[in-house]
């Protein structure tokens, strides 16, 4: 094996969840890689697809149930409107720190050269079509294709 001195050349980021906090974490990691001169590709699978679904990406929520860091009793988190309220509050804070919304973030990622891949299996499962997706999505690919993309030295894979 060639020695590349541990340098990270490319980040492969898999997003399988559709909660706002997971989506942002994945986006910040991908964008942050590009900012450091590291290549980045994202694979959207299962609920992660919501982040690139045109009609759903504007309506992502933070998880108020099953999220101990919310410091909210589970029963309360399950009440109608709680998720929207928590999400609204979080979005407000994000705007304050110059964090773009999901659509604008996708524009930034796409313009920065981040490859955006949709998982074929999950697309079939949710009956989504290519035209349902954000226009900057590069293609719908299989997990095998994604591994093929990940070949080479200095490539790291991360699941969010």
């Amino acid at each position: 094996m060639e020695n590349n001195n541990g340098k990270i050349r490319k980040m492969m980021i898999i997003l399988s969840k559709g909660t706002l906090e997971n989506v942002y974490a994945a986006f910040v990691l991908a964008n942050g890689a590009r900012m450091e001169g590291i290549e980045a590709e994202m694979f959207f699978t299962f609920f992660g697809l919501e982040a690139i679904h045109k009609k759903k990406l504007e309506h992502l929520h933070v998880a108020t149930v099953g999220n101990p860091a919310m410091h909210m009793p589970t029963m309360l988190g399950g009440l109608p409107g709680m998720e929207s309220l928590a999400s609204m509050m979080m979005k407000k804070e994000m705007e304050k720190i110059d964090m773009p919304d999901v659509h604008e973030f996708l524009d930034i990622l796409s313009a920065s050269g981040v490859k955006l891949w949709a998982c074929k299996l999950a697309m079939d499962m949710f009956h989504y079509k290519k035209e349902d997706l954000y226009e900057g999505v590069d293609a719908i690919i299989t997990v095998g294709d994604f591994y093929k993309q990940s070949e080479g030295e200095g490539v790291h894979m991360l699941m969010v």
């Binding site: 964008n31 590009r34 900012m35 450091e36 001169g37 110059d98 773009p100 604008e104 930034i108 313009a111 920065s112 050269g113």
Partner: peptide, 24 residues
């Protein structure tokens, strides 16, 4: 930030990366 540069009207993000490849 990258976002601010992209919104500056001086250069868009794509061109910024093209002008200064690798960590613009």
């Amino acid at each position: 930030s990258i976002r601010r540069v992209g919104k500056s009207g001086v250069v868009d993000i794509k061109e910024f990366y093209a002008l200064f490849p690798n960590a613009p």
